[in-house]
């Protein structure tokens, strides 16, 4: 079952996460290579988002080992993982700053580029603020919302808010991008554009991408490798075709009756 990755950027060994008596993640082994797109699927409540939260340091795992670049990362803060190890993520329930414009939201992702004295000397020629602003324009063009930079982020259409989140994650110049249900609430056309965007992020910006998604079209058209979670355990792992035909996966999604259908 296990597909081994040579020289992984991220490795999880037997990772578990429980909240009191609830076992959200039982024991998951997981590797992400330096330049691949991994799909993460599973029924509701199977632990996908928990796994993402554990990877990005927002939750602490209660058992197992985590490694980023070969260093143990189980107790690293999400700030450190973002700043020093190039880990960026988006959120399932969109989390944008409602009082800020699209541009300012994306600038939040560039926080770690600034030095303390930029807070009193933000302007002037060659200032970091200007460079960052130019960079924001480029990223917004890249995700396709270049014309909406000065609008209040939460006033945008749902699909565009998702793109602002992706833009903000890209602004941290990550090496590993975690996308939590990027296609949620998108119509089929928007979802196709998203698939393109994920491919372009992967190809042009040279980073590993993990996609959690319920929309099978998105997963099957982007991921080179898919992992299926159910009840906190990895039940299948491999290329998209094999996984979608796996009897365990069919059972998890559709029930026992459909196992052999």
């Amino acid at each position: 079952m296990s597909t081994t990755v040579t020289d992984p950027i991220f490795r999880a060994t037997g990772v578990g996460c429980r909240f009191g008596g609830v076992i959200a993640l039982d024991s998951v082994d997981f590797e992400i290579g330096r330049n691949e797109i991994v799909g993460l699927i599973g029924p509701n409540g199977s632990g996908k988002t928990t796994l993402l939260n554990v990877l990005s340091g927002i939750y602490k795992s209660t058992s197992g080992e985590l490694e980023v670049d070969g260093r143990p990362s189980r107790f690293m803060s999400s700030r450190r993982l973002s700043r020093d190890y190039g880990l960026a993520r988006t959120f399932q329930n969109i989390r944008l700053c409602s009082s800020l414009t699209v541009r300012e939201n994306v600038l939040i992702g560039m926080h770690s580029r600034f030095k303390w004295y930029d807070s009193i000397l933000p302007f002037g020629p060659g200032s970091r603020e200007k460079k960052a602003a130019a960079n924001v324009e480029e990223i917004l063009e890249f995700v396709g919302i270049g014309d909406k930079a000065d609008e209040i982020a939460t006033d945008l259409a749902y699909g565009d808010q998702r793109r602002v989140e992706i833009a903000r994650a890209l602004a941290t110049s990550p090496r590993l991008l975690l996308l939590d249900e990027p296609a949620a609430g998108m119509n089929p056309r928007e979802a196709r554009v998203l698939v393109d965007l994920i491919h372009r992020i992967h190809a042009e910006r040279d980073m590993a991408v993990v996609v959690i998604e319920h929309n099978m079209n998105v997963v099957m058209n982007t991921a080179s490798r898919v992992m299926v979670l159910d009840a906190g355990l990895c039940i299948a792992h491999g290329d998209p075709k094999t996984v979608s035909a796996d009897p365990h996966v069919l059972e998890a999604y559709l029930g026992k009756r459909f196992r052999d259908a």
Binding site: S56, I58, S77, S78, R79, S82, R83, A88, R89, F91, R95, C97, S98, S99, L100, E104, L107, I108, G109, H111, S112, R168, A171, T172
Partner: peptide
């Protein structure tokens, strides 16, 4: 900006360094 981000949502502030 980082203060406003903290005011709005500490989780995203932390996740962006």
């Amino acid at each position: 900006r980082s203060l406003l981000a903290i005011r709005e949502d500490e989780v995203i502030a932390r996740a962006h360094g």
